[in-house]
Design a protein around this nucleic acid. Structure first.
Lengths: 220, 220
DNA sequence: GTCTATAATCAGATAGAC
DNA sequence: GTCTATCTGATTATAGAC
């Protein structure tokens, strides 16, 4: 789907592509297309059931290939999850870059939070257990993922500082706390709770959570 | 630890206690003491690793009994988790009841949120996956748990309405959304993130999150 | 690279003696 | 009720043919 996808080990295919442009480029495209299908299935399943409940058999069945074939592309369940995370980080990067640089920084922060919540309510936000140490290790060792996190944090961090400088963001909060608070909107259980127990539409839910996040519970 | 513990199926022992006061009361005490030890181990492990990563073998090892003995007290892993949840709900109920009825309702809401976060940072807040359907079913079918949730929600709900009536709580937020937002502080990943990446003390972390929760990210 | 078939392991739950 | 030993099923991962 994205032409500039960055898998964990693309060196071989990339090298071959420059040697035999036409044919190998086609094979590489096929390969990437299949890997993309895998990543999309993983992404959906991770959003739906979480990492622990997702099984590799399910992934293979959803993609329509044999489980052993999966392991030719990704060497472990953790790598599958990492690939999904890389994918969402790329989407995030694309979204953040699309925001107007001349807009109010606080508006861009709101837009970023809204985007994450939309992704979650749409069932496209993978949910990983933060306590799983082997999963953490895999993510930490994945350069594409770490780069994505860093880049997004820089992006948001710039707006946070700017918003504090122009007085629109609470200056008594450490920027890192603001950043974490925004990231946490990607896994806020309030979203699902409101959808389950009330008849609110997704947009109304997001407006509500966005309001509590930026304006707080206290009256103003 | 709590003398008035309410296990899932206490009818038999309670009935026997009235028939043979002295001896069976002692046996019942032993039973409850052991079950309390189990619940405490489960509570700690659930807080530490979460439901999926916790194994029944671990629980048995921590309590110091055989796994088969565990199943004489609780018929499934889900029942173990439910018992832990009942336990925290009882602690919550005790705390909420200890708050001054004549205090500002918004102050009591803050105190409740603070209490939950203290529990979480102390490693005493069980964390359960919200997507697990069989676990959900077990919890929903547990009367003691459901009663606890209902009672706590009534308690908090009263303060929410009072705080909106006296103008200290944002009146544009539906009370149910406020309630969910408060409950969500019990599983807020921002707490751990701040602890991991900064050198903040627990009290400072809680003050920070409490501030963002009630005052919001926007400047005032 | 893809497949079928199978290892290897682990975890929830139970049997049956005491 | 507690124990040891075991069953049962699910799940990650791999072997080996094509």
């Amino acid at each position: 789907m994205k032409p500039n996808k960055m898998p964990a080990a693309p060196s071989a295919s990339t090298t071959k592509a420059s040697a035999k442009p036409a044919k190998v480029s086609f094979k590489a495209q096929m390969l990437l297309a299949r890997e993309d299908a895998i990543v999309q299935a993983v992404n959906r399943l991770l959003a739906e059931k979480g990492f622990d409940a997702m099984t590799v058999d399910e992934v293979a069945a959803n993609v329509g290939i044999a489980k052993a074939s999966l392991y030719k592309h990704f060497s472990s369940k953790e790598e599958l999850a990492a690939a999904a995370m890389v994918h969402v980080m790329q989407r995030a990067q694309a979204f953040l870059s699309s925001l107007p640089a001349d807009a109010a920084p606080i508006a861009n922060l709101r837009a970023a939070a809204r985007w994450m919540m939309q992704l979650k309510l749409a069932g496209e936000m993978p949910s990983l257990p933060s306590q799983n140490s082997t999963l953490r290790a895999t993510l930490m060792g994945n350069k594409a993922y770490m780069d994505g996190v860093m880049e997004a944090s820089d992006h948001l961090g710039g707006w946070i500082e700017a918003a504090q400088a122009n007085g629109s963001l609470n200056t008594t909060l450490p920027p890192i706390a603001v950043l974490y608070t925004l990231y946490a909107r990607a896994c806020d259980p309030v979203l699902e709770f409101l959808r389950l127990n009330d008849q609110l539409k997704d947009d109304a839910i997001i407006d509500l959570v966005l309001k509590t996040c930026f304006e707080g519970l206290n009256a103003r």
